[in-house]
């Protein structure tokens, strides 16, 4: 966490364009260069748990984007009034409230998703990305920047879990977003031919493998080495 804080203070400049270079960087940095999952390796538990299928993963991604952006905004607005000694509890209370809101909304409007995700939506509270961004960024920056920063981090998280879910659903269930892919392909080759799905991909182990491969490919390309 200390390295992040240092990084943040160095990029702070008086630039005030709506989408200045610095602000664009707030969004684009977490997508690849400081991706919360593949580089910082945060938020792994939900990345493993919800990614068996694309649809719940998408709902999870949207929920996380909402929670991170809104909590960053709230904490950033309150940053000068929050007493330093209880700041973690204040952050927790805000995040927990937002998560509960998401859960309630899902329960009312997408009950099937609620049933599938409810435990994991609740666990957004413990998603290290949320608290990480609050501590490292929102407490020391203006609301608009904090929203961009939160949005960037959440997008970085989202595209990774969606990528993992894509491969897991395709290889494990033979479909994408619930649309069967293996079946029509198998039918092309006649009655007796059928592509076998891989049961490993349905279990959390599959997520580890896919995630490992993504991190491998990414680090080979960017040359990133942990220090």
């Amino acid at each position: 966490m200390s390295t992040e804080t240092a990084q943040v203070t160095t990029v702070k400049k008086p630039a005030e364009e709506l989408l200045s270079k610095r602000r664009k960087k707030l969004i684009t940095d977490p997508l690849i260069d400081s991706n919360p999952i593949t580089i910082q390796v945060l938020g792994i538990c939900s990345a493993l748990a919800v990614t068996t299928q694309m649809q719940p993963t998408l709902v999870m991604a949207i929920s996380v984007i909402f929670v991170i952006v809104m909590s960053n905004l709230t904490i950033s607005l309150l940053r000068n009034t929050i007493p330093g000694r209880v700041r973690i509890i204040v952050q927790l209370a805000v995040v927990a409230t937002l998560v509960t809101l998401v859960n309630e909304v899902l329960k009312a409007f997408a009950y099937d998703m609620y049933k599938e995700l409810s435990v994991f939506v609740g666990l957004i509270i413990t998603n290290c990305i949320v608290m990480g961004r609050l501590e490292a960024f929102a407490l020391g920056n203006k609301p608009y920047d904090s929203v961009l920063d939160g949005f960037g981090s959440a997008l970085g998280y989202s595209w990774i879990i969606l990528a993992v879910a894509f491969f897991r659903e395709l290889l494990g269930s033979g479909s994408v977003f619930g649309v069967a892919i293996y079946e029509p392909i198998s039918n092309l080759f006649g009655e007796d031919f059928s592509l076998a799905t891989n049961g490993l991909m349905v279990s959390p182990v599959g997520a580890f493998i896919i995630l490992g491969l993504i991190i491998w490919v990414q680090r080979t390309k960017t040359g990133y080495v942990e220090h």
């Binding site: 509960t100 809101l101 309630e104 909304v105 329960k107 009312a108 409007f109 009950y111 609620y114």
Partner: peptide, 12 residues
Amino acid sequence: TSQVLGPLQKKA
């Protein structure tokens, strides 16, 4: 929120 969404949740 719970008050507003309660009836919808019951229906679901």
